[in-house]
Computed example of a mutant assay.
Amino acid sequence: MRMPEPRIHVTSPAACRTDGFRTANGECGAVLYGEPAMEKVVFEAGRSCHPAYEFRISSPGMTAVGGYGRITDSRTGEVTSTWADGHGTWARRAFASRADQVIAHELLPAPGRTVDTTLSVDTALDGLLGSTRFTTRATVSNGSGYLSLRGVGRSGRGVFGYEGITRVVAFGGSVLASGATLVVIGAVRLLLLTKLDRYESSSTGGIFPALRTALAGLESDYATLFARHTAATPA
């Protein structure tokens, strides 16, 4: 019997969320789609893979001249996208770690170029309850940026909430907070580490401190986190 191909490959960006590539670890996940100039990541919370919010990576000056490709490795869940312009090949890769319960996303520029982008969140997603109320916050601490979101809503079971926070590490560059967004300037490599979780509002006042502490304690190295993830992934 022929085994299924472990890699899914497309040669054009996904225009909508339903065509995006998904990575998940059983507890949280993300769907990646959009053009290089505006990549969108829909974070999913809980085992039900319920859409929580959309994270946006805006790089208006980015244009893909050719050679676009996006690959999902079904064995590890890693999603990789590459494209070329007049300066060379740009790359982005992401996975949902089984070992650390974090979604890691790395952005790599073409040789001699830098990653310059604005990071924000959007909550106008299909599938979210209309009564959900959101608050967002962008801060910078010890050289890392933190973009956080809290959503509180009501379902048939009562009041619920979920929170997510992304740690932004700009190697060789800087991260600035501007309102509810983070602006990255001159990074030779950009690492985004995201944790999110659901909770019952009646039993807790929030989980931001625990999520932020966990993120701050993680290695800011994609390869190290990925190696730990693959070691914890069933063969």
Score class of each variant (00 low, 15 high):
218 L>M: 11
138 A>G: 12
52 A>V: 06
198 R>F: 13
23 T>K: 07
120 S>Y: 00
16 C>T: 14
166 T>Q: 02
60 P>S: 10
218 L>A: 09
55 F>E: 10
228 R>E: 14
65 V>P: 00
231 A>P: 02
61 G>L: 15
71 I>E: 11
208 F>W: 12
103 I>F: 04
229 H>T: 10
235 A>D: 06
55 F>W: 12
89 T>F: 10
157 R>S: 13
137 R>D: 14
231 A>L: 13
133 R>G: 08
153 G>C: 07
60 P>F: 05
12 S>A: 11
206 G>Q: 07
74 S>D: 07
44 E>H: 11
115 V>K: 10
32 L>N: 03
114 T>Q: 07
85 D>T: 12
108 L>F: 01
213 T>K: 15
23 T>W: 04
182 L>I: 15
165 I>F: 04
200 E>G: 10
143 G>I: 03
208 F>G: 05
194 T>C: 10
87 H>D: 13
44 E>V: 04
6 P>N: 11
121 V>T: 14
143 G>K: 05
110 A>Y: 10
64 A>W: 02
104 A>K: 02
208 F>C: 07
135 T>R: 14
113 R>H: 07
89 T>S: 15
116 D>I: 00
160 F>G: 01
7 R>Y: 01
58 S>M: 08
3 M>Y: 07
146 Y>A: 02
137 R>N: 15
207 I>E: 00
